[in-house]
Design a binder for these strands. Structure first.
Lengths: 135, 135
DNA sequence: TCATCAAATGAAACAATGTTGCATTTGTTT
DNA sequence: AAACAAATGCAACATTGTTTCATTTGATGA
């Protein structure tokens, strides 16, 4: 689904920045940091609008945010409307610091201590990614 | 083990801030944010020293850091020298925003895509904690 | 116990990240 | 095309984290 349709589905205004951001995340396929997005968007980038755009798209469940060790904050498109947000699984490469969404890694159902209620689960696997392994 | 012994073990100087921070994390038992630590430490708190203290204790594997959604950064004591750092499991309460270390929840060994090398795994379970459930 | 030295501290100054209020512009709807 | 709500972008601010450097403190050995 293209950016305009995604926004239309969620009844969000189709503004230049939103469309650009969604297109960019679709095109690259991986998760990006603010500065990576900034350099891609060029003139269209405005820091304040960026934060508000991100907030809107997070609220609308169009993208999600991944934070690794408080070092890197990355944004990535959600792949399906439901499902993606409930159970994430990400791979963080310690070498190139890339973050890959692992769509095919099923998340275990964890048993939490008595009295707790589990609703979602995020898994972050750290290691070396395939392109760093082959070089 | 008390704060002084922990520092002695790691051959770190036993300075006031380090001892206070470790004692505080031991006393409260849960993970704390910088501002929570600040208000507990009072006059002893200095922002610059705090960051350096935290960095030292992270490097020495005495504490670890938990980040949730880029909203909250929390610090908590490691329970054992080894083991704790390799496989984390944390519970984030959506209501009171507390983070609890789940010591008894074993982390599944996840199978990563071909070409990737998995080294560590962090699990963050979100939901409602026991004290919020009972109120 | 005191002298010594490296490590830790704290002040200043900066850099990066994120937020709020407000006037202006834009997208949508009729 | 008009009207209105939503989004934008500017200024100004708040928070978070870092670097440099002179001073202080803790550990070590004489």
């Amino acid at each position: 689904m293209n950016a305009v349709d995604i926004l239309k589905n969620k009844r969000l205004k189709k503004t230049a920045q939103r469309i650009m951001l969604i297109n960019l995340l679709q095109k690259t396929g991986i998760s990006l940091t603010e500065s990576e997005i900034k350099s891609e968007l060029g003139d269209l980038y405005d820091r304040i609008t960026f934060y508000r755009t991100v907030q809107k798209l997070l609220d609308a469940n169009i993208i999600h945010r991944i934070t690794v060790d408080n070092i890197t904050v990355k944004y990535a498109l959600n792949h399906s409307d439901h499902g993606h947000s409930e159970n994430h699984s990400h791979f963080f490469c310690k070498q190139c610091h890339s973050v890959t969404c692992l769509e095919n890694v099923a998340i275990t159902e964890y048993r939490v201590p008595k009295g707790f209620k589990s609703e979602e689960c995020e898994v972050l696997i750290k290691g070396i990614c395939d392109s760093c392994m082959n070089s």
